[in-house]
């Protein structure tokens, strides 16, 4: 059988270091969107916990590390890094390869995202394990804090190049201002 060569969403675009900021692609592996039916959130969360050890996350939160669950909208979460178990009380859709996911690290990571998104990213309000569905430039996407100077940004795969353009442009502008001593 012919074995096709998988191409990641940001292939040829990343990794990149601009100024103090490093952009790296995250290969999330298996991803499944889980949307519990009305009144089924608790039982779905219990089922997830017993099979993969990660419960259904609260709004704007993630749970677990590997595998992990990332809230991604009203009544929806992405299960990342594990095969999704059979869930009777939820609609489950395979999202593997559907998302372009970029990790942003560095001293100016917050400043970079502040140029692209309207949400409050200060460490006092947007902590590790917090996630948000919001605007990134003109796109809708998700932002998750991974650490003090580390974020994960995800948009649909078809917008990978646009995301790269926006992130690169913002990082270059910050680096340019640093060069002239701002």
């Amino acid at each position: 059988m012919v074995k096709l060569i998988a191409k990641s969403p940001c292939a040829g675009l990343l990794p990149k270091t601009i100024g103090t900021v490093t952009l790296t692609e995250i290969d999330a592996g298996r991803m499944t969107l889980v949307a519990p039916f009305a009144g089924q959130k608790k039982s779905v969360s219990d089922a997830l916990k017993s099979s993969i050890g990660v419960g259904f996350p609260a709004p704007n939160r993630t749970s677990g590390t590997t595998p992990r669950a990332v809230w991604c909208g009203r009544g929806q979460a992405l299960i990342i890094g594990a095969d999704c178990p059979d869930l009777e009380g939820a609609a489950c859709v395979d999202h593997s390869d559907a998302w372009a996911i970029v990790q942003i690290d560095g001293a100016d990571a917050t400043a970079l995202l502040a140029r692209l998104t309207p949400i409050d990213l200060r460490a006092s309000t947007f902590k590790r394990g917090h996630t948000a569905r919001t605007l990134i430039g003109h796109m809708t996407g998700g932002i998750t804090r991974l650490g003090v100077q580390s974020f994960e940004v995800m948009v649909m795969r078809s917008m990978a190049a646009t995301l790269m353009h926006d992130l690169t442009q913002a990082a270059q502008n910050i680096a340019a201002r640093a060069d002239v001593g701002d």
């Binding site: 704007n60 009203r74 309207p118 949400i119 948000a132 919001t134 605007l135």
Partner: peptide, 10 residues
Amino acid sequence: PLCGDRDRRE
């Protein structure tokens, strides 16, 4: 009610 205070453009 889910996300907290958000900008109008969202």
